[in-house]
Write a protein that binds this DNA or RNA. Structure first.
Ligand SMILES: [Zn+2]
Ligand SMILES: [Zn+2]
Ligand SMILES: [Zn+2]
Ligand SMILES: [Zn+2]
Lengths: 136, 136
DNA sequence: TACGATTTGACAATGATTCTCACTCTGAGA
DNA sequence: TCTCAGAGTGAGAATCATTGTCAAATCGTA
């Protein structure tokens, strides 16, 4: 019994959004992705950018976090659970892993009887190329 | 030379906001604080609630974090750097400290040449009183 | 009590995100 | 290749937390 599942392929718009994230490297908001696409001549509606980014996030293909002012920013990341070391000046991001932290959070939560534990952890700083050079 | 500095005392509104946070215990948004105050018969403008919460946060007297949908939530906490174990069902919050995590984040950042390092870390889960009792 | 400075709050403005819905595109089937 | 139902798109409206505005209320000091 062949399950009839339409062979969906990413649309032009979806590819454009994903590609833009890939080449950006840093965390970017939906608004800025939309702006960059427009600059690059790509025609993608704002609503579609939002939808695509959400879909990618749900699929675990991009990481999401919130800026200080609550804006959602997305980044194409390596698969698997990890955290980020982000330059608050230029946005350059390094993916980091910390097995010790993972076990620590789970242990702390367990000690207090919490279940279904998740966590968020981000590190912010000023990267080497932004140090000294008061770029801004 | 007596420095003429007015003896500022927290206004009725500011006290009301702070008190509401104290008695709540959990993280609460500006909107919900405003609503609770209104219910309690206190008369405090929404703008004032926002201003007061920001001031308290700037003064380090309350902690702020962002919910998944980007809303800012505040909580009256013990002074000093710490993190939170939050029940995503009832909002009950436990303050936790992890010296090992502190040194880890700083070390990781240093290894990559980042300076002026800060970090955010929150743990989410389901607390004991919300486990089993499928209370929504 | 009078006065300048601070605070307040109703309301407007902002801005990110979501919703609507008519239109377009796609792919399976004929 | 032709058709059609369903998925995807996008312009614009709607939502909603947050911030800005500014005249009126309040406070502290002299
Ligand atoms: Zn990542
Ligand atoms: Zn982790
Ligand atoms: Zn706290
Ligand atoms: Zn810490």
């Amino acid at each position: 019994m062949t399950t009839r599942r339409p062979t969906r392929r990413p649309t032009r718009q979806q590819q454009a959004v994903a590609a833009m994230l890939e080449q950006t490297g840093a965390f970017a908001s939906a608004q800025s992705v939309h702006a960059r696409l427009r600059e690059a001549g790509e025609t993608v509606g704002l609503a579609t950018v939002y939808r695509t980014l959400q879909a990618l996030a749900d699929a675990g293909e991009v990481d999401v976090l919130r800026t200080d002012d609550g804006e959602a920013v997305y980044r194409a990341c390596e698969p698997g659970h990890h955290h980020h070391l982000v330059c608050r000046s230029c946005g350059r991001t390094v993916e980091v892993e910390g097995p010790a932290v993972e076990t620590w959070t789970d242990r702390v939560a367990a000690e207090h009887g919490f279940t279904e534990v998740t966590h968020t952890l981000e590190i912010f700083g000023t990267c080497t190329s932004c140090t000294g050079t008061h770029s801004r």
